[in-house]
Computed example of a mutant assay.
Amino acid sequence: MGKRLLLAVPMLLIVSMVMFVLASILPGDSAATILGEEATPESLAALREQMGLNLPLYQQYWNWATDAIRGDFGTSIFGGQDVVTVIVYRLPVTVSLMVLSTLVIGVVGAVLGLLSAVKGGWIGRFLDAFSLFGLAIPSFAFAVVLVSLFAVTVRAFPATGYMSLEDGFGNWIWSLTLPVIAMSLSGTTLVAKQMRDSALEVLSRDSIRVLRANGISERSILFRHVLKNAAIPATTVLGVCVVGALTGAVFIENVFVMPGLGSLATQSTMTHDMPVLLGLGVYFTLIVVGVNLLVDVVYGFINPKVRVS
């Protein structure tokens, strides 16, 4: 685990450098966006000099990096607020989506996979069809369908917005139900398929036949042996799905007009708000590192033999 933490440092540097370069080659710049289309060349040049945009790209990055090491990610060009304050304010929305989506993907995927492996028949055929459906439809397209059916037609859930836990647990869940379902679809199918394949492989082992011959109950075999061994590869897939959900959050938050990090990334890209973009890159990287560390912890909990140092 300590090695993973050390690897996070070069990862943060690489991500921030890549984002800096990509943002610099986008058409336009922050000065032009602030002053508008009617800005004169003189006013643009003066504002660029004031913002440091006239410096070489490596110098701009060095100035940002030296401040970031001290915990200063700068100030939003358009909001005028501290970048950390802007990100932390929106962080609970994205974290709520990520946590609930992870629970849905893990629990529903594991249950469907185990049922398909143990029962087979129509459940297995349903899982195959469900997997094809989940992988073929993009999350944002599925989100639009959910809004149309359950927010506009039936009006069972809100079409847009976010309610925090301070507004009540029920309201919080109510506002997140459709976004979480949209984000969880593809991940649930992947975990279910992996769980089924792994469970079938474990069930075919000679050790399972020996346990059955010794009179061990199917329930005990399923939960103490099959689930324990099949959960490790499924956990790997779950970790990949959670990281992929960060990308999905960008689209989902925009569809449901949720004030999270995904929508902030979209706004900052459109307005060339470099300090916010770089700050988001750091936070997203930290989330990825945190997910990988959590997967390692789960590995160790499921099977102590695979614990990492």
Results as ranks from 00 to 15, higher is better:
V21R: 01
S217E: 02
N254A: 10
N254S: 14
M183W: 04
G168L: 07
V308A: 14
K305E: 12
I14Q: 09
A231I: 02
S198Y: 00
A143H: 04
F126C: 13
P158W: 01
D72T: 02
V21W: 06
S207A: 10
G2W: 10
F284L: 11
L222S: 09
G215W: 07
T177A: 15
M98L: 15
R70Y: 01
L146S: 01
T94P: 02
Q267T: 15
N303I: 07
Q60S: 13
V86D: 06
L44M: 02
D206E: 14
R224F: 06
G279Q: 10
L280S: 08
A230L: 12
L146V: 10
F251Y: 07
V107T: 11
I105V: 14
F251P: 08
I181C: 12
I34A: 11
L44H: 06
S217A: 06
D296C: 12
L280Q: 05
G215D: 09
R307I: 10
T153V: 12
Q59K: 12
P275I: 13
Q194Y: 15
L35K: 03
F142Y: 09
S139D: 14
S101G: 07
T40M: 05
V9Y: 05
T153W: 11
C241P: 06
F251E: 01
M274H: 04
A151G: 04
L6K: 09
A117Y: 08
I208M: 14
W64G: 07
T236W: 06
L55S: 15
A234C: 02
M1F: 06
A265C: 05
G28K: 07
P179T: 01
T85Q: 05
E37T: 05
H272T: 01
T189C: 11
I34N: 02
L176W: 09
V93C: 00
A31H: 09
F301E: 00
A231Q: 04
S186H: 08
V288Y: 00
T85R: 10
V242R: 02
Y89G: 01
L26Q: 15
V295S: 10
D72A: 05
V104M: 04
